[in-house]
């Protein structure tokens, strides 16, 4: 079965990202395909490359990155929700006159249309919201 995930909870504030990651690995372990993860609402903070938890805690951004590397899972981030919350790529930062950026590949800033496309492509879209 093809799965997609919608993550709307912030890292270290809500259990949603941890739950989504565990679900992602469970889906893959059972032989299903995970097509992509879409980050929306406060979930966009998962993409921040500046997150620096203590060394004995899971770095959620690195965990998503590993998921992409090992299983070729697309990591799409809603551009409107991200920019509003200060999560921004290098090209968007320069376009808006900022000196710094905190989002880079494999995360991709994209439109909400990508969420709807993911939902249409997958047999199941599972939401992790809080």
């Amino acid at each position: 079965m093809d799965y997609g995930l919608l993550v709307m909870g912030a890292p270290y504030s809500q259990p949603a990202p941890h739950s989504a990651l565990r679900f992602a690995h469970a889906v893959l372990a059972r032989g299903h395909r995970l097509v992509g993860v879409f980050f929306y609402h406060d979930g966009v903070h998962n993409a921040s490359m500046l997150m620096t938890p203590p060394q004995d805690e899971l770095n959620l951004r690195d965990a998503w990155k590993a998921l992409h590397k090992e299983h070729d899972v697309a990591l799409d981030v809603c551009i409107a929700a991200a920019l509003r919350r200060g999560v921004i790529s290098q090209s968007e930062a320069s376009r808006h006159g900022h000196d710094a950026f905190n989002l880079e590949a494999p995360f991709e800033l994209t439109g909400l249309g990508q969420l709807l496309t993911l939902q249409q492509r997958c047999d199941r879209l599972i939401t992790f919201a809080s």
Binding site: Y40, H41, A81, R84, G111, L112, G113, L115, L116
Partner: peptide, 18 residues
Amino acid sequence: DSNWLREGLDAALVGAAF
């Protein structure tokens, strides 16, 4: 209540636009 309503409506509008 946070940005839930605004971002939910945005998703609805994009769905309609698609």
